[in-house]
Amino acid sequence: MSGPTELPPAIDVSNLRKVYGSGHTEIVAIRDATLQINRGEVVGLFGPSGSGKSTLLTAMALINPPTSGHIVIGGQPVMDGPRAMVDARSFRRQNIGFVFQKPNLIPFLTALENVQVALEINDTPAKKARERALELLEYLSVHPRADNLPVALSGGEQQRVAVARALANNPSLILADEPTASLDGALGRQVMELFTKVAHERHAGVLVVTHDARTLDVFDRILDVEDGRIQIRANHKTQ
């Protein structure tokens, strides 16, 4: 098996710029952002509200085209300015996993089915999808609750299922938007450690947008966003 260093970066963003409105109403949400996340790396994206974190995340998720700049995911150019170079939905399905502040599990599906659905919409046969979903739930230690509906799961269990769903199609990139915001400290830490485990063992690049300063040590790198600009924070593990 190839090691993470031999693989292309999970995502490579260069000179990304996003402008809303025009003329007097023009707002620059992202200013020439450049960043790279390697496979197996967990990167934290910090910044105050309105700094451009979510805009950057949605641009990287191919749901909010940038005004200019380039995005390459897993070695494949996907955005050239506002122009998509791939079918965005199909590309997301195969290459990007998402985890949100709320688990956003589909309430009418069991934990197992919530993971299985991500596989089936990527054309994995039902039986194989079920086996793979169960395997992921086991990996994240939530398999005893596989047949429970989300409403019967605790917040931490729901977030683990959400992580399992994000991992379902072996994405090269996982984008997490404040995944610990609705969890208490211990659970939040568990989820963040889960990202580290996933990144290291499954060779995915993980970008976590967060305000949570209690888990700084789990990140390999930290990026700060302020007024649409990205800066690398030095020596965060010693803070």
């Binding site: 939905r89 199909s90 997301r92 399905r93 195969q94 589909i106 309430p107 991500a118 919409i121 990527n122």
Partner: peptide
């Protein structure tokens, strides 16, 4: 009632036919 679930399905790549 399930518009967020549908948005989620679209985000994770579900086709329009689904």
């Amino acid at each position: 009632d399930k518009i967020r679930d549908i948005a989620l399905l679209k985000l994770i790549g579900a086709r329009n036919t689904v």
